[in-house]
């Protein structure tokens, strides 16, 4: 008879057997951060151009590390406590200094769930980002644990303690300009390094990876992209995708947003339901963009309820 005690023995026995574990379980759950040096004293840790999965541990967003004479400056903290800890170590190694400032570009979990590894008194962002984390942080947390599993172990939502009020912050030889915008979410913080001319856009810009839209205001987003295009810069670090000189990311993000919004509105106007709209073919150019089908489907689910609420004519009769 299989009693509880016997069952435990069985489990203990199995654990000591030299079983070949599956590949997923063999992974040591260590984030391997591979910083790319962009300019003197600026590194980007590139995120995987993928959806959040158990395989990538949610490490899909770009993280930026800047050196300054006052200490390391980190932009975004990654998806989990474990990632944040690896990032803190990396920032200290690269700069040889302790962290002077952490900025958060917005409230999505792939950008701010590594906060716990840092001193909250050093984490700065806008009031809108904090509000978003307060409202949605626990929900994101559930969803992240469900999606990426053990990578999240010990991760809790940690709110920033610093609300940015001044347009610039000086860190010895480096001056960072904070540019609050919106569109990808209700509050997106863009950062500009006045020394190097590097523009850090957060998720207002995606490059070669389809933009995500769960909290997007498409019209606002387009305005922010136009504003970003008006800022002369030597290089743009997008929220996802390669950091390049020029404005390819800005243009591609605008084309994507305009393209899929037009497609979805057209599907709605033709009377298609969500699943039918999701099955429509994407234009050729979109096929070269990572996770385009996945993000298009998600965008259908984000936009359709708004269109239904706004555009279907009232038909109820007073009884």
């Amino acid at each position: 008879m299989l009693t509880r005690r016997n069952a435990l023995k069985l489990v203990a026995g199995a654990a000591s057997l030299p079983l070949l574990p599956s590949k997923a379980h063999a992974a040591p759950l260590t984030y391997e951060l591979r910083p790319e040096k962009l300019e003197q004293g600026i590194w980007m840790v590139p995120g995987a151009q993928q959806a959040i999965t158990q395989e990538n541990g949610g490490a899909i967003a770009n993280i930026t590390i800047l050196d300054s004479s006052a200490g390391a400056i980190v932009v975004d903290t990654g998806p989990s406590l474990r990632y944040g800890e690896a990032l803190l170590k990396l920032a200290q190694e690269l700069t040889g200094k302790s962290v002077a400032r952490v900025y958060l570009t917005h409230f999505h979990p792939d950008h701010c769930f590594g906060n716990q590894a840092f001193d909250p008194a050093l984490i700065a962002t806008t009031q809108g980002v904090v509000d978003g984390m307060k409202a949605l942080g626990e929900g994101f947390s559930d969803s992240m644990y469900q999606t990426v599993g053990d990578w999240m172990r010990g991760t809790e939502v940690v709110l920033p303690k610093v609300i940015l009020s001044a347009p610039v912050e000086d860190f010895g030889d480096r001056r960072i300009r904070a540019l609050p915008m919106r569109g990808h979410t209700a509050s997106d913080l863009v950062l500009f390094d006045e020394v190097s001319g590097v523009l850090i856009s957060g998720d207002l810009v995606f490059l070669d990876r389809a933009p995500t839209t769960p909290h997007a205001d498409f019209e606002r987003w387009r305005i922010s992209l136009a504003n970003l295009g008006g800022i002369p810069h030597n290089r743009l670090i997008p929220g996802h995708g390669p950091a390049e000189p020029g404005d390819r990311g800005i243009r591609q993000t605008r084309e994507w947003l305009e393209g899929i919004e037009a497609m979805i509105r057209d599907a709605f106007d033709r009377g298609l339901d969500m699943n039918e709209a999701m099955a429509l073919p994407l234009p050729k150019w979109a096929e070269n963009i990572a996770v385009s089908r996945y993000e298009y489907e998600r965008s259908v689910m984000h936009l359709y309820p708004k269109l239904e609420a706004e555009k279907l004519p009232r038909v109820d009769q007073k009884s």
Binding site: P79, H108, P109, G139, D142, S143, T147, E308, R314
Partner: peptide, 24 residues
Amino acid sequence: GGGCSAPAVGRGEASWSETLGQAS
């Protein structure tokens, strides 16, 4: 769910009774 999915909020907004039965 996807990482950016907010969970169900149950009854949604408190003013549901004002819009009850509105159809489009």
